[in-house]
Nucleic acid binder design. Structure first.
Length: 208
DNA sequence: CGATTTTGACCCGCGC
DNA sequence: GCGCGGGTCAAAATCG
């Protein structure tokens, strides 16, 4: 049993103690996201402040993952090239930037290292949720059966190869699905009030 | 001028 | 084997 590090961009070092708010949340199982089970968190109160302008306002709708632990197994979306880095036992945390010689795709015979991956839905008017880290967009793709494209972001912190995907649901335009992949190797770069709050709470249930 | 975004091309896995 | 869908690269464009 591989215990994956937290997928959320918050390491256990986060000081906030996730206790008080937990009673407000309830977990519901949904089951429609790329074939994986999805967990939604309903807030009985709070986080419905949908008035704001330049700063994001979001209402968290839930965790999406294969299981409540958000382990990445079988999410099966990432391939790692072990050519330039030792991946033997490094918990797959380095998706080595493959700078230089082109594409990162694995070759035959290389073993796939899956990184922890965790997705959650957020009801938001904006696509880019301010989670306190700095991200650089490196790609965008049209998604089948979805009129909205999916955006790919990478953490800009040197040596940190955490990625995330952001996608808006076509059947519910108000819902943004954010998928985090990997674990941040550095502290958060700026404080975010409500989003940190949200993620802190979610960590209670995901224990990832 | 450095950082970030845009976008077309490329690569890979998978299903048929 | 082929086509499709998804993920990434990298050059050019844009932004601050």
């Amino acid at each position: 049993m591989d215990n994956f590090a937290p997928v959320f961009p918050y390491n256990s070092s986060s000081s906030t103690s996730p206790t008080a708010v937990s009673s407000r949340l309830s977990l519901n199982l949904m089951s429609d996201y790329s074939g994986h089970a999805a967990y939604s968190i309903d807030h009985n109160n709070g986080y419905d402040h949908l008035e704001d302008d330049n700063h994001d306002h979001y209402q968290n709708l839930g965790l999406i993952g294969k299981n409540p632990n958000c382990s990445s197994d079988e999410v099966g979306l990432d391939h790692v090239s072990p050519t330039t880095s030792e991946l033997g036992n490094s918990e797959g945390n380095d998706l080595n930037s493959a700078s230089g010689s082109g594409k990162v795709h694995i070759k035959k015979g290389d073993k796939k290292i899956r990184k922890p991956k965790c997705a959650f839905q957020t009801r938001s008017q904006v696509d880019i949720l301010d989670d306190g880290y700095r991200w650089r967009k490196y790609g965008q793709k049209a998604v089948k059966n979805n009129k909205f494209p999916r955006s790919y972001y990478r953490c800009t912190y040197q040596g940190c190869n955490v990625k995330k995907q952001v996608q808006r649901l076509s059947k519910d335009e108000g819902v943004v699905v954010t998928t985090y992949e990997g674990t941040h190797t550095h502290p958060i770069e700026k404080s975010t009030d409500n989003f940190e709050h949200i993620l802190t709470q979610m960590q209670i249930y995901s224990s990832c």
